[in-house]
Design a protein around this nucleic acid. Structure first.
Length: 242
DNA sequence: GCCAACGTTGGC
DNA sequence: GCCAACGTTGGC
């Protein structure tokens, strides 16, 4: 089941705000409600999902409205080891995704506005790293693809769910999820410790990973990578571990 | 299991 | 709107 719970917020909200990708900025967003609001939990989980397959596409969207950057690469965290939260085991590792029908699941349980907004920016076909967190060996285990764009996370209305959010109303849902499909394992597990070494190094020499969100926004469970960051990280699978 | 970092809550 | 207290994330 799921993961982090947390919840509570205040009331209402406005809604969907936009997706946004902000990035460099930080903040997040949401305008939701009144001011405060968000909760915080991130993470995810997955499960089969029913529908799907969607394909929506974006249309021209792309045009970058000046100002906001558009990302096509992501890193999503999930816990591969059992941990009971509100009576439910939140374990969901890459092997669990792989075991689902069509190797596809919904990334529910995200209860952080910024992470949610990043999910709303995701388009079908985008690639994401499956990151194992809060476990013996944290790091990137594999790759997955976005196969369905953001839609209402039903677990926010489920009292039995670890991420139930009593403040969210059916007619104005706060939380969204995407469907992801297992793509492949990385050729080798890329440990956080190794990424950290590159990050340190790059902070000194201006390398690609100097601003990697994994280190600059450590608690964000859904985070964007630039194409350069994504390619660099992926290239590590063909190199010797440092 | 500890605990630093940081996001959220809620009084004022 | 500020900010102290509190709760969560997630590495170690």
């Amino acid at each position: 089941q799921r993961m982090p719970p947390k919840k509570r917020t205040r009331g209402t909200t406005a809604e969907h705000e936009e997706p946004a990708a902000k990035l460099a900025k930080k903040d997040d967003d949401e305008k939701d409600s009144s001011g405060k609001g968000a909760k915080g939990a991130p993470r995810r989980r997955g499960k089969p999902e029913a529908g799907n397959s969607g394909m929506q596409e974006d249309k021209g969207a792309a045009a970058a409205p000046a100002g906001k950057e558009v990302y096509c690469h992501w890193l999503m965290k999930s816990e591969p080891e059992s941990r009971i939260e509100k009576g439910v085991d939140v374990k969901f590792g890459i092997e669990d995704l792989k075991a689902l029908p069509k190797q596809t699941g919904c990334w529910d349980g995200v209860r952080n506005y910024q992470a949610r907004n990043f999910m709303k920016d995701m388009k079908v076909g985008h690639e994401a790293f499956f990151y194992h967190s809060n476990c013996k060996e944290p790091g990137i285990a594999g790759l997955m693809k976005i196969v369905k764009e953001a839609y209402v996370d039903h677990t926010q209305f489920d009292k039995k769910d670890a991420h139930y959010d009593p403040s969210s109303k059916k007619d104005n849902p706060k939380w969204y999820m995407v469907d992801v499909q297992f793509d492949r394992m990385t050729k080798r597990f890329i440990p956080l410790s190794e990424l950290k070494k590159y990050h340190q190094q790059h902070k000194s020499n201006g390398g690609v990973l100097k601003g990697l969100a994994l280190f600059t926004r450590a608690r964000l469970s859904v985070q964007p990578l630039s194409k350069e960051e994504f390619d660099f990280v992926l290239s590590l699978e063909d190199k010797e571990p440092i």
